[in-house]
């Protein structure tokens, strides 16, 4: 493992190790989420669904993964 692959990211406020090269699509798969039902923000910028597979995560990234829930 090289240095670029080491580090931590934050996902929904929780620290998570980044154990190597990973994309947004890879992260969603690792968590077990269906990418069609969520939206992802990386460092306060939207990651379009079409770019999940091409968006590489970097150490220090902060991600928000959200979905729709009941609300008034």
């Amino acid at each position: 493992m090289n240095d670029a692959g080491m580090g931590m990211i934050t996902v929904n406020g929780e620290a998570r190790p980044l154990d190597g090269p990973m994309t947004v699509a890879g992260l969603l798969a690792a968590i077990g989420l269906d990418g069609r039902k969520v939206a992802v923000e990386r460092n306060e910028a939207i990651v379009p669904r079409s770019e999940y597979a091409a968006t590489r995560l970097e150490p220090g990234d902060s991600l928000e993964i959200v979905h729709f829930i009941g609300g008034g």
Partner: peptide
């Protein structure tokens, strides 16, 4: 109307 909230990472299914 619907709300937007963080996914529960410990219960993704």
């Amino acid at each position: 109307t619907v709300a937007v909230r963080r996914v529960n990472l410990s219960d993704p299914k």
